[in-house]
Design a protein around this nucleic acid. Sequence first.
DNA 1: TAAGATTGTTTGATGTCCCAACAGATTGTG
DNA 2: CACAATCTGTTGGGACATCAAACAATCTTA
Lengths: 153, 153
Amino acid sequence: MSQQIVPDSLKRIERRRLDQGALPGLLGYRLRLAQQAVFRDFAASVHGLSPGRVGLLIYIDANPGVTQSRLAEAVERDRSTMVGALDQLQSRGLIERRRGDDRRTNGLWLTRAGRGLLARALRAIARHERRIAARLSAAQKRQLLALLDRIAG
Amino acid sequence: MSQQIVPDSLKRIERRRLDQGALPGLLGYRLRLAQQAVFRDFAASVHGLSPGRVGLLIYIDANPGVTQSRLAEAVERDRSTMVGALDQLQSRGLIERRRGDDRRTNGLWLTRAGRGLLARALRAIARHERRIAARLSAAQKRQLLALLDRIAG
DNA sequence: TAAGATTGTTTGATGTCCCAACAGATTGTG
DNA sequence: CACAATCTGTTGGGACATCAAACAATCTTA
């Protein structure tokens, strides 16, 4: 009954974009939107490796021989989380675990394949970064990074 | 053997903060750090509801009677993902599903309890927002939001 | 040397998400 | 009007990423 009375103009209103309520005013929400956009572009640029995994490769490359615990601490994850992540990278032949002098520890190293993949990924990331930064002037990018640092504390 | 030769000065170097390699230069990385900081503060402020779940409540509050599909579309999630999320909220007595005129659909509504919880959550979020924004001047916050929008596209 | 701490690991749990398939309901087309 | 196409919510299966607790091997300290 009510359906027959509703004019088309109202039906169109019903189909309008939803009201976002208080969401757009929240810094965290806007931050998330920006991050999602960047993540999408990253995923489209770098195939088969998430930002987090690339981050691990970068850390290991910059700190050859680092132990699992120290790496976990650096990226603020649990030791047990690191095991699975490193298993992935190792099973793909990208990293190597070598027992350390302290025989409780594993030192982590990039394999030749790992270095190759990282180099390729870094080139893709450089393109990705340029694509993102193209929406900003150099001064704006500096500004944004500075403001983000204030937020991150 | 080698262990006995390593001087303390070197050992201290080994314990230093890890080299972050190319990471700090990347916009996406800095964005993630800022978002993580905001997320931590959110979690400490709003207990028992993730930002995403609060987002759903805000949407439903602003669009009473919205269908599950439209809501899923608005937050860019699969329809089937929405089922579980709404089951959660419904089992906690925060929302209600009412069969729509189109009997395929469920219209979504906040219950009295849902409105109460949302009101409390919004007050907590307002405090959270002030705490975050306190690190910025009003002009800086405007600037940050504008820059984030450029990134988000 | 015995007690305590650290390291990597396993196991179990939580949370969030997607896809494929499906039945019921509605819409569009011939 | 009948029937194919489409839409809606749901289920079941799986993929990730994460943490906490417990454990054996190893190292450090008292």
